[in-house]
Design a protein around this nucleic acid. Structure first.
Lengths: 202, 202
DNA sequence: CGTGAGTTTGACCAGATGGTCAAATCAAGA
DNA sequence: TCTTGATTTGACCATCTGGTCAAACTCACG
């Protein structure tokens, strides 16, 4: 393992290659189902070489998850108290759906982790995530109290958005098995848009 | 492995114990993350004893999945063309939500499999499941054309029901991390009910 | 260039894991 | 009770897997 100076050109390149390879492998097979060798090969390195950059399989996984958590939560973070309620929410939903389309690996990485009880990110859930959600549901509640959107359970509103949007990334195989050639997102966007307009119209 | 006569008392008991144990273990850790030893211990058997009843880990998994698929799809199967449209759909949703509450292991078993690309049940998806969904969406389409419920994309309507209801089983940890002590289903039921009433009212 | 830090690798290890097998034990009907 | 098929198990095996290590190699810079 290199010293703690500024990373060299090679270090930057290889670390990035490893994390990208790890995202491919972990999101497709889960933590336990992935092997260090797979990740190394995918990154174009030998196993010992990979372990020169990260001390263990677990360390790669942790680095990946914590590095992506911010990206993953950014859309909710951007929900703006000062904006137009309906537009803010619909724009949040659109961004989430777009992330399912463009970052399905990231979605499945978290899905894999969550469905197995989140053994490695439990803390982030009950701290950072909970705090963010509490903060944003407070805004939703306020909008509801002001009559700007319909009164619904704010936490379940958030859950429903997560469920509906991430479904298309996480259960992609199933969706495609049923839709055939039709692009899932083509129909999903207007469907979800309509759904929330009807639900939230005051 | 026993002859192909009628199963003995012991065979019935042990096979059932193995499948129940396998459901616990596979749903919590996924296929690759589960070990035969874990399942055997959970079933109260030694590993070789377990392998006397099922020829391999894969065979247990397959038996489990195919045995549960019918249970899992029963509510959709029961969607009745002759019933009242809104009531039929809402009752389907209620049953799905109840299954997430009462059979979360089953939900997570399928979720684990699907999120990893369904390597072991791909056929069932694009055949049995697709056929069932095609059949039922035809009914939905008809109801829409008759003006009994609002016009929405019928496939995405089904997807949304799956996503919203199974979310509470599959991502249970996350939901509980955010809701704290509050019972998730307490708030989920009225929320989802309202959501679909508003969406589908003609 | 030459040198020292940074990088890469072949060989290797220990433990986990899926699966086998022959021998021992048990259960139920004749 | 005796016999035969069903059941159970300890010992074992081959492979996979995460991880180590010393030696070899490469690169940047004085």
């Amino acid at each position: 393992m290199p010293k703690d100076r500024a990373p060299t050109r090679i270090q930057k390149k290889n670390r990035a290659a490893i994390l990208d390879a790890a995202l491919n492998v972990f999101s497709a097979h889960g933590f336990r189902g992935s092997t260090v060798d797979q990740i190394a090969t995918e990154a174009g390195l030998s196993k010992p070489n990979l372990l020169y950059y990260f001390p263990s399989k677990e360390a790669i996984h942790t680095a990946l998850l914590s590095g992506l958590l911010d990206v993953w939560l950014a859309p909710l973070h951007d929900l703006d108290e000062a904006g137009d309620p309906m537009e803010e929410i619909l724009s949040y939903i659109r961004r989430k759906l777009q992330m399912s389309r463009e970052l399905p690996r990231e979605s499945r990485l978290f899905a894999n982790e969550l469905v197995q009880g989140a053994p490695r990110i439990h803390d982030a859930l009950s701290q950072d995530l909970k705090q963010l959600v509490d903060e944003k549901t407070a805004i939703l509640k306020q909008w509801m109290d002001e009559g700007k959107i319909a009164q619904v359970h704010p936490y379940h509103l958030i859950f429903s958005i997560w469920a509906l949007t991430q479904h298309y990334a996480d259960f992609d195989v199933q969706v495609r098995a049923i839709l055939g050639d039709e692009d899932p997102f083509e129909g999903a966007e207007p469907f979800i848009d309509t759904l929330y307009r009807k639900l939230l119209s005051p």
